[in-house]
């Protein structure tokens, strides 16, 4: 059923060399990081990895800034981590057997601090997504402390082609569209989503409802898997609501973690389900990247002339 790529010449068009999505087991580590205590958080990651091993997890996903905590303020520069930091060794080591996605304040060679999602596989950092859309309004202050990423890229893994976005990136459909157009069959959204809105009109927090709507919408419209990993706990009185979930390409929730509780949930990602949905609803087949590009180019020319 899946298409082999080994015999294809790499000079062929990119989508001809893209590895189709494989079936695998994903784990969502809905944790409560310690604010500004990287060593303790690394140990926490190691502990959850050990727990995930007993459940045969192939890819384990942690929330946004899982190694640092979220409302860091001046702790951003004090807790920033370079990718070659020896403290990350246990995570690189663990990735020999289990692929990992976690969040951290990444210090670049030129001393900029990014809110990054780091994807480790086979002992290597396969991909680093630097959050593009830094939330800087209302309760959020990221733009004051962090540098914004400049890239939106899908990337190849042993499971197929994936995309990583971080929290506010998801609130920009353009960002999700680019990663989708770049071939991601499964989009990983990691988040430190604060819970707010406790009006009696709704059963859930208003912020939770919005996220569930977003995940459902992106999964259905892009006929993609959407994986959302949110954290829990409190920082300076702000709650993080959890509710991590895996949404299938038909929009169905495959697993959803409870609200507010530290937990590890797992789900099966099915290559067959993705193929079936794309047969039933060929939105991807009919997508017109060329047309979109032409029109965006025109808009760009007109707006920035």
């Amino acid at each position: 059923m899946t298409c082999a790529v080994e015999r294809l010449n790499a000079q062929l068009l990119p989508e001809r060399t893209q590895k189709p999505l494989q079936s695998f087991r994903i784990g969502l580590a809905q944790i409560n990081p310690h604010l500004g205590d990287v060593s303790r958080n690394i140990q926490k990651h190691v502990d959850v990895i050990a727990q995930a091993e007993t459940q045969a997890v192939d890819l384990l996903v942690f929330p946004e800034l899982s190694l640092n905590g979220y409302f860091l303020e001046d702790l951003v520069s004090e807790t920033a981590i370079c990718l070659d930091d020896s403290r990350l060794e246990p995570l690189f080591e663990a990735s020999q057997h289990m692929s990992l996605l976690f969040g951290m304040v990444e210090e670049s060679a030129d001393q900029r601090f990014y809110n990054s999602g780091v994807y480790l596989e086979a002992g290597q950092a396969h991909h680093v997504h630097r959050k593009v859309y830094l939330a800087t309004y209302g309760m959020f202050d990221e733009g004051r402390y962090l540098a914004a990423g400049e890239h939106l890229r899908a990337f190849d893994t042993r499971f197929g082609r994936l995309g990583v976005l971080i929290c506010e990136d998801f609130w920009h459909p353009s960002a999700v569209s680019v990663v989708h157009a770049d071939g991601a069959d499964l989009i990983l959204g990691i988040s430190s989503g604060p819970g707010r809105g406790v009006s009696g009109e709704s059963q859930d927090l208003r912020s939770a409802q919005t996220w569930h709507n977003l995940n459902n919408l992106y999964a259905r419209m892009f006929t993609n898997y959407v994986v959302y990993c949110n954290r829990v706990g409190y920082e300076d009185g702000v709650n993080f609501w959890g509710g991590s979930e895996v949404v299938g390409p038909d929009g169905a929730v495959i697993v959803r973690a409870p609200y507010f509780e530290e937990t590890l949930v797992t789900a099966e990602i099915s290559a067959a389900a993705l193929r079936r949905q794309r047969s039933l609803l060929p939105l991807l087949r009919d997508e017109r990247l060329d047309l979109t590009y032409r029109e965006l180019r025109r808009i760009y020319r007109e707006r920035y002339r």
Partner: peptide, 20 residues
Amino acid sequence: NALDLNLPLTERILHSFIRN
């Protein structure tokens, strides 16, 4: 309408807030 609380949810968040 907006001030009308989801009471079980509010209770849960505040309990957990105090503990945490």
